[in-house]
Simulated assay, not measured.
Amino acid sequence: MTAGLAVASHAPPFPAIDWSRPWFADVAAAGQAASSADDWRAGLCRAAASRGITTAAGLPLRFVPQSALPCGESYEAFIAATGCVPTRDNLHDFFNALIWLTFPRAKAALNARQAAAIAADGIGATRGSLRDAATLFDENAALFVTADPALADALRGFDWSTLFLARRQAWGRATEVAGFGHALLEKLVTPYKSVTAHAWIVPVDRAYFEWPRSERCAWLDAQLTRALAHAPFTSHDFAPLPVLGVPGWCQDNDAPEFYADTAVFRPGRRRRVAAC
């Protein structure tokens, strides 16, 4: 290095992440690769290009600085029109990029749906029910993947005892959770007991749990794409899921008393929850 000259650092400007945490399983490889690149945003772009990721309109996906977003233009409409994702120097946008790399078709479908709603209704003081639901999905969704309808019923019915204790052995064999919302993953960098996701139920065959992780992600991506591209949905189509209750996600939940905290594992009324 030449004496007296400083070398610009392009390392991610946020804390180190423990990629071994179970909730990062689907994004860990991409996250580690991007965060170790000389320029993390360029690393994300290279990863997108190598995977051939595009928007719903077929535009190659790129991650650009936030300053690329024109003043007054909608974020979602800009992505749909250009293929460029404005990406700030923070954890929130970093995880958003990792979800694009992990579930690219679903993210593209979600973006197209939001952009179409903006084109039809404009940007007002309120988003409307579709955009509200799409935003919840984008920011805070967890995919509750299950081959057992009784476990989906337990989730819908706030039956935490059945879901997490009586049927504990079903986790990893007949049900699992995958993170989708980038704000959810951001919270889980420094997890706390009350972190709660908006769970979206995805029914599967039991054979799903025998597939490698990469095949599960690809299947979920395709399934979500169909649901997000066309199906009507609202914010009422999610179920609350305190994610640190997931067996294996928190050592403290090995003790049944963990679930006795009704401030986190709240009782509630059974409600309609959509499924793919």
Rank of each mutant, 00 (worst) to 15 (best):
R167E: 12
I99Q: 11
N96T: 10
L69G: 09
A117L: 13
D254F: 01
L151P: 06
A116C: 02
A141E: 09
G248W: 01
A80P: 10
P65G: 07
P86Y: 06
S129H: 00
T162R: 06
D132S: 10
R206T: 15
L185D: 10
P86A: 04
A109M: 05
P13L: 07
D254K: 12
A116P: 11
D18C: 09
A33T: 15
L130I: 09
G43F: 11
A218D: 12
W211N: 00
T262G: 10
L220S: 12
S235N: 00
L188C: 00
G122Y: 06
T234Y: 12
L185M: 14
C217S: 13
G157H: 01
A197L: 09
F258S: 10
A34I: 01
D89L: 07
I53L: 07
P149S: 12
A68D: 14
H92T: 05
L110N: 09
W249E: 10
A183W: 13
K187G: 08
L184Y: 09
L69C: 05
I118W: 10
G157P: 12
G72C: 02
A3L: 13
A109G: 10
R113I: 05
D237L: 07
Q169L: 15
A81K: 14
A152M: 07
F265N: 08
H10G: 14
P12V: 03
H236C: 14
G72T: 08
S214M: 11
P104F: 04
F164T: 03
F94V: 00
G181S: 05
A274S: 14
A81P: 00
R226N: 12
Y208F: 15
V145G: 01
A49R: 11
N96S: 10
A57S: 10
A48L: 06
S20M: 01
P60F: 09
L220N: 11
A30P: 00
